[in-house]
Design a protein around this nucleic acid. Sequence first.
DNA 1: AAATTATCTTGACACTGTAAAGACGCGATG
DNA 2: CATCGCGTCTTTACAGTGTCAAGATAATTT
Lengths: 210, 210
Amino acid sequence: MTQKAGKAAYHHGDLRKALLEAAERELDEKGIEAFSLRGVAKRAGVSHAAPAHHFKDTAALLTALAAVAAERFYHAMKARQAMARPDPHAQFIASGVGYIDFAVQNPGLFKLMFGSERPKSDDPSLVEHATNGFMVLVKDVADMTRRNPMEVDEGRLDVMAAWGLVHGVANLLVAGRGFVIDALLERDGDAALERLIDRATPPSFRRPSK
Amino acid sequence: MTQKAGKAAYHHGDLRKALLEAAERELDEKGIEAFSLRGVAKRAGVSHAAPAHHFKDTAALLTALAAVAAERFYHAMKARQAMARPDPHAQFIASGVGYIDFAVQNPGLFKLMFGSERPKSDDPSLVEHATNGFMVLVKDVADMTRRNPMEVDEGRLDVMAAWGLVHGVANLLVAGRGFVIDALLERDGDAALERLIDRATPPSFRRPSK
DNA sequence: AAATTATCTTGACACTGTAAAGACGCGATG
DNA sequence: CATCGCGTCTTTACAGTGTCAAGATAATTT
């Protein structure tokens, strides 16, 4: 086969993984717009052309990183839900808080997933994990409204509204435009987000159908 | 003074304005992440170092462009409101539709304003126009709830929710993640957005206070 | 042990943003 | 009107970027 399991297989060991970790650090410190492949190579302690043997180009590296980000993103939401009450509305709020909190805790990864065109958005692995995340949202809305929202116009509007709400708040916070609720977040933490989503829940989510 | 009014004052005429227009084209075609200052200069028909005399660096150019974008953004919302019924709820929906529609019609400028860290977000002109836009939203919420929302916690949550909703939907559409409602938009146009915002309006926006 | 293959390095190229220095034309001043 | 001065643009240069091609080295296979 190609490489050993543990570490130090060849010159570096598992360089592919090391590059992904270095890329995440680069992303956190420099931001997506100043992200540099040579910087990643430097962090990993290899030459500037080494990444080419593991990732075709920068876009491929960022795509792989976006895929692991999407996976973590999904698990962050599921973990929130696991700790919340099982009723549909509580589950909806939990995933929403998880959505926003992940963005705040991982602004670089979040912007990579949703705010950059550099990752190839049709990558199978990325699509898979992103779809998983989306399905959480759809299921939440489905459980609240007791139907498959994607099958009717009103349901689709509801899904888009729910997604848009958490996505917009996440984006605003990550973009440094959260001054409206920064003080509340400082004081109440996640509870403020719960209140926000709860207050913003439209009537169509409270009733079975309509 | 420095230059004539009409055109062709010196070698180029009003190069500053020409650069801003060229930058907008560059932004539309290449996107913010592939935006190139030399590309802008080429479009304007000047040497690659010419922009330096009108904008200190690329960030300064993008900042100026973001400022004009913010101004247009504000006017787009106001224009929508001027054509809508005068009641608070209709005004709120109108500005929301204007918000989202501007993003869809000007994805480059929208991403520049909200999704990029390259413009200097503390630029006075940019801050001024951005604040104007924000004030539209605050006023809408204020008119619906009959109070200054920024003065109480619940009001701030409402403002953030309203902003987040339209901002999130706009972002998703601009990021090519609008598949949930793309068909509806294709069919009904802005009316679909009106329905979306209307359905998503939380109960706290319908009643005077509480 | 020798050959093959995978992995990484070195060097090169075209491109980027920015700085410094020079050329040019316009407006103001004598 | 001629000249100066200054604002405007160009040329040249440099450090940095992503990517390609060729070479070197270690690990695996035969």
